[in-house]
Computed example of a mutant assay.
Amino acid sequence: MDQRGKASPVEMTPVLRSAPALRLVHHALEHAESRGWSVAVVVVDHGGEALASARMDGVGAPTLGFAADKAFTAATMRRSTRDFCARMNGADDLRAGLANRPRLITWEGGLPILHGEAIVGGIGVSGALGHEDAECAQAGLCRLGLSSGI
């Protein structure tokens, strides 16, 4: 609404910037290191474009790609990759369509990033067990006072 009480034709959306994205990556990596896990982390903006990424020593390049796809899926599908996977259960038509969408992934470890009610990005972690990947992503968000909505 504008000052006159009329609906605005333009909706303003918060934007995730590169500096906090880098801090998210750092905090998620710190959490993994404290647990003895080796992971890769990627943070994307609301459209799924990479803002920051890193992989720990010894983590292969494909793992970074998995993390990127988890972050992309969480941001663009507006839900965690775990929830996205649950949505696929018993939905053969959705699973068949998913096979034609190369960046969407249902492995746990991708979380949307919320600022208030707005999805401003996604974080993906890969390299440990699925629930450990998700734990690292959530730890990064918590350290910055952000939410995944779950």
Rank of each mutant, 00 (worst) to 15 (best):
residue 1 M to G: 11
residue 1 M to L: 12
residue 2 D to K: 12
residue 2 D to W: 01
residue 4 R to H: 11
residue 5 G to K: 07
residue 5 G to A: 04
residue 6 K to D: 10
residue 8 S to A: 13
residue 9 P to V: 03
residue 10 V to N: 06
residue 10 V to W: 04
residue 11 E to R: 09
residue 15 V to M: 04
residue 18 S to R: 09
residue 18 S to D: 13
residue 18 S to I: 08
residue 18 S to W: 02
residue 18 S to E: 15
residue 19 A to R: 07
residue 20 P to Y: 00
residue 21 A to T: 02
residue 23 R to V: 02
residue 23 R to N: 07
residue 28 A to R: 01
residue 29 L to T: 02
residue 32 A to Q: 00
residue 33 E to A: 11
residue 34 S to D: 00
residue 36 G to K: 00
residue 36 G to W: 00
residue 37 W to E: 01
residue 37 W to P: 00
residue 39 V to S: 00
residue 40 A to K: 04
residue 40 A to V: 00
residue 41 V to A: 01
residue 44 V to S: 00
residue 45 D to T: 01
residue 45 D to W: 00
residue 47 G to R: 03
residue 48 G to E: 05
residue 48 G to R: 06
residue 48 G to A: 09
residue 49 E to V: 15
residue 50 A to W: 00
residue 51 L to P: 07
residue 52 A to R: 07
residue 55 R to S: 15
residue 56 M to K: 13
residue 58 G to D: 13
residue 58 G to V: 08
residue 59 V to T: 15
residue 60 G to N: 12
residue 64 L to P: 11
residue 64 L to A: 14
residue 67 A to R: 08
residue 67 A to L: 08
residue 67 A to Y: 05
residue 67 A to I: 08
residue 71 A to I: 03
residue 73 T to K: 07
residue 77 M to F: 06
residue 78 R to P: 01
residue 79 R to D: 08
residue 81 T to W: 10
residue 90 G to P: 10
residue 91 A to K: 15
residue 91 A to V: 09
residue 92 D to H: 09
residue 94 L to P: 02
residue 95 R to N: 08
residue 95 R to G: 04
residue 95 R to E: 07
residue 96 A to Y: 07
residue 97 G to N: 12
residue 99 A to D: 13
residue 99 A to M: 11
residue 100 N to C: 12
residue 101 R to Y: 05
residue 104 L to M: 15
residue 105 I to D: 15
residue 106 T to D: 13
residue 107 W to G: 15
residue 109 G to P: 15
residue 111 L to R: 03
residue 112 P to T: 09
residue 112 P to D: 11
residue 113 I to D: 12
residue 113 I to H: 14
residue 119 I to N: 04
residue 119 I to M: 03
residue 123 I to S: 05
residue 125 V to S: 03
residue 125 V to F: 06
residue 126 S to Q: 06
residue 127 G to E: 10
residue 127 G to R: 02
residue 128 A to G: 09
residue 129 L to Y: 04
residue 129 L to D: 08
residue 130 G to W: 00
residue 130 G to H: 03
residue 133 D to N: 15
residue 133 D to S: 07
residue 134 A to M: 12
residue 135 E to P: 05
residue 137 A to R: 07
residue 139 A to S: 14
residue 140 G to F: 11
residue 140 G to M: 10
residue 142 C to D: 15
residue 143 R to W: 02
residue 144 L to E: 09
residue 145 G to N: 09
residue 147 S to T: 13
residue 150 I to P: 09
